[in-house]
């Protein structure tokens, strides 16, 4: 078994040359085209955005990006700042904090489930997983009432706690699968040599699964970044996230301003794209929920 695992670790991808790159590039660009079109729309004027036949080549304009942050207003006498910097901050702050919190709390729990099993260990794990699989619509009514009664509605803490709860299940499952792959015999040996529990946990286990923790973080971030339904119902003016603000720009007497919307989408895509790019290899690993041993 160990030998097979080791051999599996030596696996290498088959090599292919530039010819294959060309083929994959064509398919990828076709697949990417709807996104590309959104990004192009962000640089178009209002007439260009809805031109028929569609314009692939046009004179680019930055008006839409300026429009995200400044709004022409007659009453204020010129340009007025919009709240979008705040919304971007909210999105980053809320998603980042809750995914990080879930990772910390989830890692502790995962370590316990893996190394110090409770009575009814599997039942707990099953209940935890079920809460993740549940459609949000099932709990939305009581959560809405609960937030209204407790005054959590519209506060950072409320939405952060809620997102943390959403991220805990797969944090626990994913991180547990990483702990399960470590060799407990080495830890026991260290304990025999007099290492404390804390030293075993922080000094031996955690450093070995750092890549896994990174994967869990990215995966959680992708899932939380774009959450809309709960953000719509539970955030207030000060804690509004970008997806909600984005949806609010849709309503207007002159119809949807696609250029402006595209600019928001493009700006909002940059951070998550960048993080994913940096941790791409870990994501590939994490998405399988640790079911592929290497």
């Amino acid at each position: 078994m160990a030998a097979a695992a080791r051999r599996g670790r030596q696996r290498e991808l088959g090599k292919a040359g530039w010819g294959w790159t060309a083929l994959v590039a064509v398919v990828s660009i076709i697949y990417f085209f709807p996104v590309l079109w959104i990004i192009l729309t962000a640089f178009k004027t209002r007439t260009d955005a809805l031109a028929i036949p569609p314009k692939l080549f046009f004179t680019p304009t930055l008006d839409n990006f300026i429009g995200v942050f400044y709004r022409a207003s007659i009453s204020a006498g010129g340009a007025q700042e919009t709240n979008f910097p705040l919304y971007f901050f909210n999105s980053i702050f809320i998603a980042g904090t809750s995914v990080l919190l879930a990772l910390i709390v989830g890692t502790l729990a995962a370590y316990a489930f893996s190394r110090h099993p409770l009575r009814g260990n599997d039942t707990y794990l099953f209940i935890i997983l079920t809460t993740r699989m549940m459609p949000p619509i099932v709990v939305i009514i009581p959560i809405f009432l609960m937030f209204r009664l407790s005054g959590l509605a519209g506060s950072y803490w409320g939405i952060i706690l809620l997102y943390t709860a959403f991220n805990i299940p797969f944090s626990v499952w994913l991180v547990k699968s990483f702990f399960d792959e470590l060799n407990p015999e080495i830890e026991d040996a260290a304990r025999m040599d007099g290492a404390t529990e804390r030293q075993v946990f922080f000094g031996m286990c955690l450093p070995q699964i750092l890549a896994g923790l990174a994967a869990t973080f990215v995966f959680g971030l992708i899932l939380t970044w774009n959450e809309f339904l709960f953000a719509l119902l539970l955030t207030g003016v000060d804690t509004r996230t970008v997806p909600v603000a984005m949806a609010r720009t849709l309503g207007g007497e002159v119809g949807v301003d696609y250029g402006l919307l595209a600019a928001i989408v493009t700006l909002f895509l940059i951070p998550i794209f960048f993080v994913t790019f940096l941790l791409q290899n870990q994501l590939l690993r994490g998405v399988t929920f640790g079911t592929v041993k290497r």
Binding site: T21, F32, I38, N226, P243, M246, F277
Partner: peptide
């Protein structure tokens, strides 16, 4: 397509992964 190594694999893979990172709202509207 992606199960082999070839030049520019990382970047092309990112292009394919991007739809997953968009919000439902923007996918819906566009």
């Amino acid at each position: 397509m992606f199960a082999r190594s070839f030049p520019l694999r990382r970047i092309l893979l990112m292009l394919v992964l991007t739809p997953m990172m968009l919000s439902f709202v923007s996918v819906g509207v566009f």
